[in-house]
């Protein structure tokens, strides 16, 4: 056997290497998990294909169907990754003592968070690129030019922050099984009733205000507006920012590491 000495040589790796290593590890684990891939890629693409082919069975309101659908499915993808996947993965990390072990490792909590964000953004980039490609293939023609793209980018980042904050809030307070159930339930409820894929105009008038202040409604409707050339909805930006800040503050107070 090769000589192996345990003589002490302590030291932390550079922060950038730790964060990158953590991001790669989380991404690999996510891709290995069939249910997560289903949630991240298969369901959004199916919704996009199905919605585009469903003709007039589902009323998507005014505008070309694919132009209404694609930004909504992008919001759905963000919700699945930043909220549902992150909540479930983190809850089980807590349950299996991964977070506890990392607490004694050189990776600081900020590094852990940055690693998670890195993994999250990498997965989302792939999801969004795929959805955009499928959308374009089905005839999606986003309007709004460069300003619209930047506005969409801002909404996607804020939406990610808001949903990730809520996901971590859930993962840090509930048991792993409860998180698994609740994160999926919230996903389904918001998908159906949160103005994600269906535009706000498809819901009863009385729900309009509620939908506008839900993170799902704010993100999806904001994306629909900005990619249709209607400009960046300031209200959506404010709503998502408030959710992000509130969720982060609450998570920081309540998160239990073991």
């Amino acid at each position: 056997m090769s000589p192996l000495t345990h003589s002490p040589a302590p030291g932390a790796a550079p922060m950038s290497r730790m964060v990158a290593s953590h991001a790669v590890m989380e991404t690999r684990l996510l891709l290995r998990n069939g249910e997560q891939v289903l949630l991240a890629v298969v369901i959004p693409v199916l919704v996009l294909l199905g919605g585009a082919e469903a003709g007039n069975v589902i009323d998507l309101g005014s505008g070309r169907r694919i132009d209404v659908l694609t930004p909504g499915v992008m919001a759905l993808a963000v919700m699945s990754t930043a909220f549902t996947s992150l909540a479930i993965a983190t809850a089980f990390e807590r349950r299996y003592g991964v977070l506890k072990l990392l607490g004694a490792s050189p990776l600081p909590r900020t590094g852990l968070l940055l690693g998670k964000v890195g993994s999250l953004l990498a997965v989302e980039a792939c999801q969004l690129a795929l959805i955009a490609l499928v959308g374009i293939a089905l005839g999606w023609r986003p309007a709004g030019g460069l300003g619209g793209t930047l506005g969409a980018g801002l909404l996607l980042l804020l939406g990610t922050a808001a949903f990730a904050g809520l996901g971590l809030l859930m993962a840090g307070t509930l048991r792993a099984e409860a998180t698994l159930a609740a994160a999926n339930l919230v996903y389904v409820v918001l998908l159906a009733a949160g103005a994600v894929v269906l535009p706000v105009s498809a819901y009863p008038k009385a729900m309009e205000v509620v939908l506008a202040v839900l993170p799902s409604g704010a993100l999806a409707q904001g994306l629909r507006d900005v990619t249709s050339g209607a400009g960046l909805d300031r209200t959506a930006v404010v709503v998502l920012t408030v959710w992000a800040v509130a969720a982060a503050a609450l998570t920081a107070r309540t998160f239990r590491w073991d």
Binding site: P10, A12, A13, M18, S21, L29, F92, Y96, G97, V98
Partner: peptide, 20 residues
């Protein structure tokens, strides 16, 4: 505990090693 349940043994150890 202290490991991801889906992580391979060598992958897990490599990850921890990468923090040092």
């Amino acid at each position: 505990g202290g490991a991801w349940s889906a992580a391979h043994a060598d992958e897990m150890l490599r990850y921890v090693a990468s923090l040092y």
